[in-house]
């Protein structure tokens, strides 16, 4: 169904999409500024308008549940949602670009699931906090107003909820994605049961006492271009790195299994690790790979 609320200024659309998830008038939609205003309106495909009340939301999953005073409407049973895999043919039902007006049904698109993967996206410069499982779609669903729409199988069974417009964190390309209902079920139940949103501990990305190359006893080559390859410049005598056998000109390939494409990546990843945690580095030395484990704690104990 079509949802209308605040927005409409400076390129912000004042509409999005939602789906009925029970015969009691509960509507699942995306948590966005559209719901900011009092008097959010929900319009069915038959053109019937309802004032909607916000029941609750989950800001990390970016979903919200609204309630309209209507019973017995046909709805999606998201508990019976279907899991999809790459290649699964799907349909997407959204109010993209607000094309559907009055008593018109929302727009249907057809496509296939590209991948099932962890979400890694940004809006503008900001990384989206949600990093759970999503379906990437090859239908162009990442459109204004599409958030809160539903992805179904070809025979109409619910699969996933379309999220807000986001770009791939690594390539900057628009991502067409949807969050599987299996990921949303618990949060929806919690909202429906009237419990407050759990104050999820959104783990701080920055450690209080961050690790750094100098602490580990080595330095990187000067970071001159945006993508300077992370070569070890020098290894300090008596440092942890020297002990572990790191040599100058080693290239840092990954840290704790996460690929490091540049000096900046190394600085950022080490910054997320606490000083008392061990660090596993993979190094490229000539044409071979070397794995080393470094720990400040062990070294302190050893001394």
């Amino acid at each position: 169904m079509k949802i209308f609320g605040s927005g409409g200024l400076r390129g912000l659309e004042a509409y999005q999409t939602g789906i009925l998830i029970s015969d009691k008038g509960y509507v699942l939609t995306a948590w966005s500024y559209v719901l900011d205003a009092e008097g959010t309106r929900v319009v069915t495909d038959a053109g019937e308008r309802f004032e909607a009340k916000l029941v609750g939301h989950d800001s990390k999953l970016e979903i919200a549940v609204l309630k309209i005073e209507a019973e017995g409407l046909q709805h999606f049973n998201i508990e019976a949602a279907v899991e999809a895999k790459p290649g699964t043919r799907i349909r997407a039902l959204t109010n993209c670009y607000g094309v559907a007006t009055g008593d018109e049904p929302v727009s249907v698109q057809q496509g296939a699931v590209v991948a099932v993967t962890k979400f890694d996206a940004r809006r503008g410069k900001w990384k989206v906090p949600f990093d759970g499982k999503v379906l990437i779609l090859d239908a162009i669903t990442s459109n204004p107003g599409a958030a809160g729409g539903v992805v179904t199988t070809l025979d109409g069974l619910p699969v996933a909820l379309i999220g807000k417009e986001s770009r791939d964190n690594r390539t900057g390309a628009w991502l067409n994605y949807a969050v599987p209902f299996s990921e949303l079920g618990d949060a929806v139940q919690r909202i429906l049961s009237g419990k407050q949103q759990q104050q999820r501990q959104i783990s701080s990305r920055r450690s209080s006492e961050p690790m750094g190359p100098e602490l580990l006893g080595f330095s990187l080559v000067p970071d001159v271009v945006g993508r300077t390859p992370p070569f070890v410049d020098s290894v300090f005598i008596d440092g942890v790195a020297a002990e572990a056998g790191i040599l100058p000109d080693d290239l840092i390939v990954d840290i704790n299994g996460i690929a490091t494409a540049s000096c900046r990546d190394v600085a950022r990843l080490l910054g997320q690790i606490d000083r008392d945690e061990p660090v596993k580095l993979t190094l490229q030395r000539g044409s071979t790979f070397v794995s080393v484990k470094l720990s400040l704690v062990k070294s302190a104990a050893g001394n």
Binding site: M1, T44, A46, Q74, D155, G156
Partner: peptide, 20 residues
């Protein structure tokens, strides 16, 4: 209520046609 259901059904019908 019936209207909403009707249109949902009409969408499903369209799918069925495609299915056939």
């Amino acid at each position: 209520m019936i209207r909403f259901a009707f249109v949902l059904i009409s969408i499903i019908q369209a799918w069925l046609v495609a299915a056939v």
